[in-house]
């Protein structure tokens, strides 16, 4: 029997009603097709997740990688994290400056250091040591994708969750943070358990008002609800989002479980997303 594979991508839960997101949705759909082909060819969940997130980072279509926003000090400080299940290997970088693909740096932390989270200049040192691609012309590289929405805690992230044919799960998340974010602010994206999670049960990636996701321990909460409440994947994701709403926040969560069920939900206006279901069917859009 062939084991199921599935994946979900998100391009952020920050959506403005008056704007068209045709380009983003078309891009996500194309990435979903690419991901489906990689998985059909036996691709490893971590390789697939990193490849797709990197494509989103390089596209400048989302608030991550090239589309990131400068912080209040005028600097581009990027965050990313990755986790693999069932092994629970994890890596994350916070406030990384100068590199094309923060998710690739997070993977290096996971694979090549004894640590999980590295912040600031040290993250750049590790990325450089491992020859992660640097940005040649930082002054002209960034093309901020974020549109100010007037809120103090804004949203903008990309993420990917994958189940591969060997039953390996991976969650990966990358962000350029919030528009005009305070210098040194770290949101949920590089926090294992908040913005990203993967274990034997499920892989999760979150996007939204990061502070609420941290206080709700949102990504790990999806797994906890499945484990302790016996929730289905959809129920668990909804429960985690309801908890965030109760704290006063909004955003979205994508998840895939070990059986190939997928979930993509949000309590914001919408979430740019694409899904490859276990039967190969692809779905992409702003709203579900």
């Amino acid at each position: 029997m062939t084991r199921p594979t599935a994946l979900v991508l998100h391009g952020g839960a920050g959506v403005l009603a008056e704007r068209s997101y045709e380009r983003e949705v078309a891009h996500l759909r194309a990435l979903a097709q690419e991901g489906r082909a990689l998985l059909a060819g036996g691709g490893h969940a971590v390789d697939v997740a990193v490849k797709l997130v990197r494509a989103m980072e390089e596209s400048a279509l989302y608030v991550a990688g090239r589309g990131a926003s400068p912080n209040t000090a005028g600097r581009y400080e990027l965050d990313a994290s990755i986790m693999e299940g069932p092994s629970r290997k994890a890596g994350a970088v916070a406030a990384l400056e100068g590199f094309i693909s923060p998710i690739t740096a997070a993977r290096v932390v996971m694979d090549s250091t004894p640590h999980v989270l590295i912040a600031g200049a040290g993250a750049a040192d590790i990325a450089r040591t491992h020859k992660i691609e640097e940005i040649a012309e930082p002054d002209s590289y960034y093309q901020p994708a974020a549109v100010p929405d007037g809120r103090e805690i804004a949203t903008g992230t990309v993420g990917c969750v994958v189940l591969d044919s060997d039953g390996i799960l991976c969650g990966a998340t990358s962000t350029g943070g919030t528009l005009r974010k305070r210098w040194g602010r770290v949101g949920d994206t590089p926090i294992i358990g908040s913005g990203t999670w993967a274990d034997a049960r499920v892989a999760v990636s979150c996007t939204g008002q990061g502070e609420y996701f941290m206080r709700a321990n949102a990504a790990a909460d999806v797994s906890a609800r499945m484990r302790y409440l016996g929730s289905s994947l959809d129920e668990a994701v909804k429960g985690a989002l309801d908890d965030i709403a109760e704290l006063g926040g909004d955003g979205g969560i994508i998840a895939v479980d070990s059986k190939g069920h997928v979930s993509a939900q949000y309590n914001s206006q919408g979430m740019k997303h694409a899904i490859v279901h276990a039967d190969g069917h692809i779905e992409a859009g702003m709203q579900r």
Binding site: G184, R185, G187, R215
Partner: peptide
């Protein structure tokens, strides 16, 4: 409005 600040940004705060 934040939960976590790191490094120089935390010192500035």
């Amino acid at each position: 409005p934040h939960v976590m600040l790191v490094g120089d940004g935390a010192e500035g705060f």
